[in-house]
């Protein structure tokens, strides 16, 4: 994988974007706005566009196996379809882990180096970054399935990117819809633990919206960003009203883990089953 140009470009982006973003913040703070917003959420900003990056990375990396025909070499010498599939899944997942890890560390270290305002310490941000690994597992599973089944170095990336954009747009739409719903509710009602904010909505919205909000990796990322912003503001003592109450971190982590592992298990099982039956040229 290290020799793969696609992987190297993604790694470069993982290190280069933090450098660009933090340097921009530094310039803003130095020359324009002496008091700037905290940059805690920037450390996990990659999770917002993770789906698109992984769609491109996974589909291009695995698509090469088909375009160069090298997947045949593995089958000819007797490797099972399942082992090939799982090896590919593991490889792209580990590659994505590395990209995310580099992004987080680069953002955090540059933020500290430039003296930009950060409300949370490494010990508080690291768990949030670690949660990103769960999102990666879900995305990697989805796009591995797409790439292994489309069996094309050109069609696979197109399908994967369409799915990535669809997931992202759906996540944003769910988040926006819930934001609008919560904005209509007085804060004192939201603070009541027994109150159901969606009680006035149709039954299907009461079931579907929370399910998608918790299940989609894209909206999980937004929840996590909200949590980091909320935790930072709470620690700094300037907590303001948030539209959607951030989930307590262990509950957020548990819910994300459940849905992400379910997505990974389901897509991997389907992927292996269909890949086993696929005729390869």
């Amino acid at each position: 994988m290290c020799r793969s140009k696609i992987f190297r470009i993604c790694l470069l982006f993982s290190a280069g974007y933090p450098l660009f973003q933090m340097t921009l913040r530094l310039i803003e703070r130095t020359f324009y706005y002496p008091v700037s917003e905290p940059v805690d959420t920037f450390t996990i900003l990659d999770l917002m566009f993770l789906g698109i990056v992984l769609a491109a990375f996974v589909s291009l990396y695995l698509g090469r196996e088909y375009s160069d025909g090298v997947i045949r070499n593995k089958l000819i010498i007797g490797h099972s379809r399942m082992s090939i599939y799982l090896a590919n899944l593991l490889t792209v997942t580990l590659g994505a882990f590395l990209m995310h890890g580099i992004f987080f560390l680069a953002m955090f270290l540059l933020g500290r180096l430039y003296g930009l305002p950060m409300e949370l310490g490494f010990g508080e941000l690291a768990p949030a970054a670690l949660l990103g690994f769960l999102f990666i597992i879900a995305y990697a599973s989805i796009f591995t399935m797409v790439s292994m089944l489309t069996a094309s170095g050109s069609v696979g990336p197109v399908v994967a990117l369409i799915i990535a954009f669809f997931l992202m747009i759906m996540g944003i739409s769910i988040y926006s819809a819930l934001s609008d719903m919560y904005a209509e509710i007085p804060p004192e009602l939201l603070a009541d633990p027994g109150f159901n904010p969606l009680a006035s909505r149709p039954k299907w919205q009461q079931v579907l919206f929370p399910l998608l909000y918790n299940a989609l990796p894209s909206s999980q990322a937004m929840q996590l960003m909200d949590y980091v912003a909320y935790a930072g503001a709470a620690k700094a003592g300037h907590l303001s009203t948030v539209v959607i109450e951030p989930t307590v971190f262990p509950l957020l982590a548990g819910t994300s883990a459940l849905y992400d592992l379910l997505i990974a298990t389901f897509t991997t099982a389907i992927g292996i089953l269909l890949f086993r039956r696929k005729d390869l040229n």
Binding site: R3, D68, G69, V70, I71, I76, I77, S80
Partner: peptide, 21 residues
């Protein structure tokens, strides 16, 4: 059969090679 396949090599249609290696 997977063990026996280790005794076999094949070039099917076009050579299966990494073009950037």
């Amino acid at each position: 059969i997977s063990d026996v396949r280790r005794r076999m090599g094949a070039v099917v249609e076009t050579p299966s090679i990494y073009l950037d290696l």
